[in-house]
């Protein structure tokens, strides 16, 4: 690991000021992405600013939303009674991610900012990686592609966004609250991530030194009837090949409201707007669910190593919709 200075952030204002003033300062939360990539030599900050003692932990509830402090751990969020009752797919996505040990460390802010699992990105001995080294090319496009994206890709990068919990949060239009040098702002998760285009090293709208303070999750009626399915190469403790997070409200056999997002397929957590359009107002039948899945994957661009994901993603979505519909009939 490259040597670095360690400093404890005193308060949010100071943390933002210090990090904004120094491009070589990075925030340290649970460390499960940050330290991992520093050990690999992918990240080499000159200073780590430990934000774990800032008062950004804990969950507050209103009638219409919950506000999750950025330093709340994945385990803490999964254990929240409101999440359990009214946001089942958020809880499922959390508990199907990583391991209990990692979930006790990993924070919700850090989770949203986790970096690509692309093996070439994580190996600095590979010269070509536009995300790690802008303009150097993409080793994955001519390499081994299994854990890569098929939606939102570009000729410059096909890396996947691997967060599980970001999938239901994207479906729900969760909002990221931040504090930066220019004050505070609120960004819907659907506008937070940036697809790679020709700048894969720019992954989201955050400025350097801007701190995520909280994530606000709306409590939609449909979310009480939600489900997350994750398909993996092994039963547990593995990233998704494909996943689907679905919240639907069905009345008299008709879909009243539908929220759909996909994991394992997108360069960003993938909101399946087209699938929602097919579902809303339609009969809750497997035929309709299949049409929705077709619509969701219509824009897929595959490479030999990722071609299998199109069918798998469709089936994952159909299965998730059937499960939620089955529970309501």
């Amino acid at each position: 690991m490259h040597p670095f200075e360690y400093a404890l952030a005193r308060d949010a204002d100071q943390a933002v000021a210090v990090a904004t003033a120094d491009p070589h300062t990075s925030f340290l939360a649970g460390g499960t992405t940050q330290l991992d990539l520093m050990k690999d030599g992918v990240l080499q900050p000159g200073r780590l600013l430990d934000i774990t003692r800032l008062p950004l932990k804990g969950i507050t509830h209103t009638d219409t939303a919950i506000r999750v402090g950025a330093l709340t751990t994945m385990e803490e969020l999964a254990a929240d009674p409101v999440v359990r009752d009214r946001l089942p797919f958020v809880r499922e996505a959390l508990l199907l991610g990583a391991s209990t040990q990692l979930r006790n460390m990993a924070t919700i802010g850090g989770n949203l900012l986790q970096r690509a699992r692309c093996r070439y990105f994580r190996d600095p001995t590979v010269p070509a990686c536009n995300k790690r080294n802008p303009g150097s090319g993409c080793a994955a496009i001519d390499g081994i592609q299994r854990m890569h994206a098929i939606l939102g890709t570009s000729d410059h990068c096909i890396a996947l966004h691997a967060s599980d919990v970001a999938v239901p949060l994207t479906a729900l239009d969760a909002v990221v609250h931040t504090q930066g040098a220019d004050g505070t702002r609120s960004v819907p998760l659907t506008q937070f991530y940036l697809p790679p285009d020709d700048t894969p090293h720019v992954e989201n709208v955050l400025q350097h030194g801007e701190l995520i303070t909280a994530v606000e999750i709306p409590l939609l009626p449909a979310a009480a009837r939600s489900h997350y399915i994750k398909v993996r190469d092994r039963v547990s403790y593995e990233f998704a090949l494909t996943s689907a997070g679905v919240a639907v409200l069905i009345e008299n056999g008709l879909v009243q409201e539908a929220r759909v997002a996909l994991g394992g397929v997108g360069t960003i957590p993938w909101r399946a707007w087209d699938a929602e359009d097919v579902l809303r107002g339609a009969q809750a039948t497997t035929e309709v669910f299949r049409s929705a899945a077709e619509a969701a994957l219509a824009g897929a661009r595959t490479l030999p190593g990722t071609a299998f994901k199109v069918d798998l993603a469709k089936r994952t979505l159909v299965r998730t919709l059937e499960t939620v519909a089955g529970a309501q009939s």
């Binding site: 360690y6 340290l28 649970g30 460390g31 499960t32 780590l48 430990d50 209990t100 040990q101 990692l102």
Partner: peptide
């Protein structure tokens, strides 16, 4: 009281 992986925590933290 919570289990963690000690290889991804800094001692200083």
């Amino acid at each position: 009281g919570r289990r963690v992986v000690s290889c991804l925590a800094l001692a200083a933290q």
